[in-house]
């Protein structure tokens, strides 16, 4: 597997897009009339959240690949996607919290359905690694983690439906997902940010896969060249390799 291919170009594209996005955020997008400067965190927060949710669903799709083929590579891909999404998701939660404090005066608001759904999804995925860690046999670990990833992937949209319905009143939000009430310049900035964060996700995902892959190959080489005893056995780990 050559995850390294095209990585340099991808990294450059990511850096360029994110720089462009930041430039647009600070110099092009107009100040929000009500919220002022702090509203600009929206351009980081919402893309982070969207990308992490898509990453969770991607993890589920990759896990289907594992269950169908039984090839370890798919499990590794799924694992890295979910791992990355967790990091992006936590970052999204923190930025969301800052935004909530600035615009509504509270760190946490229960009547914002997107925020609440997001928290539930994160709580569920927070159990992904403890689950893996609790299973000794690597093959079974991959299989069970994939079953979890598929189930949780289907859970993400369903959860959003249920929580959204549960709110009688919805806060005036800047963005309905269709982006209907967003002025053109804000919308452009938002879309560029979204693209930048998505590219960042893909780049980091590929880097992590390339690193894991290289490490596994080195291990395999050592084992075959120096004999099995020369390589210390893998410790118990939540991460597949």
């Amino acid at each position: 597997m050559t995850y390294g291919r095209g990585l340099r170009g991808l990294s450059l594209a990511t850096a360029a897009t994110i720089s462009l996005a930041l430039g647009l955020v600070f110099f092009y997008a107009p100040l929000d009339a009500d919220q002022g400067f702090v509203q600009k965190i929206f351009y980081i927060h919402v893309p982070l959240a969207i990308v992490s949710l898509c990453g969770f669903i991607l993890g589920g799709l990759l896990a289907i690949g594992y269950l169908r083929t039984g090839e370890r590579q798919w499990d590794v891909r799924s694992y890295v996607a979910i791992h990355m999404s967790l990091i992006f998701g936590i970052a999204g939660l923190i930025t969301g919290s800052i935004w909530a404090k600035a615009s509504w005066g509270h760190w946490w608001v229960w009547n914002e359905p997107t925020l609440v759904s997001f928290l539930i999804v994160l709580l569920l995925y927070a159990t992904y690694q403890p689950l893996r860690f609790a299973i000794e046999d690597p093959e079974r670990q991959s299989r069970y983690a994939s079953v979890f990833a598929v189930t949780a992937g289907a859970f993400v949209p369903l959860n959003f439906i249920a929580v959204r319905l549960a709110q009688q009143y919805v806060h005036p939000r800047i963005l309905t997902l269709s982006g209907g009430n967003l002025p053109g310049s804000m919308r452009l900035t938002f879309l560029v940010s979204l693209l930048g964060i998505a590219l960042l996700f893909v780049t980091l995902w590929k880097y992590e896969l390339a690193a894991k892959n290289t490490r596994a190959q080195i291990r395999a080489l050592r084992r075959s060249l120096l004999g099995e005893e020369s390589v210390r056995p893998l410790g118990r780990s939540a991460a597949p390799s």
Binding site: I120, L123, L124, T127, L131, F148, T151, A152, F155, L158, N159, I161, A162, V163, A166
Partner: peptide
């Protein structure tokens, strides 16, 4: 694992 999965059903 079960409790977060069941939150929508609980709601």
């Amino acid at each position: 694992i079960g409790l977060p999965l069941l939150i929508p059903a609980l709601i």
